[in-house]
């Protein structure tokens, strides 16, 4: 069964996103197909050069970059939300696929779960 985890909340403000990443990696650990979709303020997860030492947190950018190693094949982001937050190819995490129609992207999965 394929599962899509949707992150629509900004990084660092809450634990919701980290829990989402945890859930995604847990699915991957048991070889369950899992993918991530970032929409709304959630796209800010994907910005390069996050340096959260000053707020005492680990870099979500670096955490997220481990996902492919653990078998999370697909990381998608809403194209319009990326544009709204000034995310371009130049400052976005490598390997992220932008999608124009998030509803269509969600339709490809049997299970869709919003984080937090």
């Amino acid at each position: 069964m394929s599962t899509l985890i949707v992150v629509d909340q900004a990084p660092y403000g809450s634990w919701a996103g980290r829990e989402a990443l945890d859930m995604t990696l847990s699915l991957a650990a048991f070889d369950q197909p899992a993918a991530l979709l970032f929409i709304g303020a959630g796209v800010n997860w994907l910005r390069q050069q996050q340096a959260p030492e000053g707020i005492g947190q680990k870099s979500l950018e670096k955490n997220l970059s481990a996902a492919p190693i653990f078998g999370v094949e697909t990381i998608m982001a809403s194209a319009s939300d990326c544009q709204r937050y000034g995310l371009t190819d130049a400052n976005t995490l490598a390997g992220v696929v932008t999608v124009d129609d998030t509803k269509a992207a969600m339709a490809g999965y049997e299970q869709v779960a919003f984080a937090g």
């Binding site: 990696l25 870099s59 670096k62 955490n63 481990a66």
Partner: peptide
Amino acid sequence: DFYREHEMSPPSNRLFVKAVKE
């Protein structure tokens, strides 16, 4: 090296094995 790059430990034993295998 993994920690330097990803600022995390492999979250579980299965994922540790998976990362080593990779």
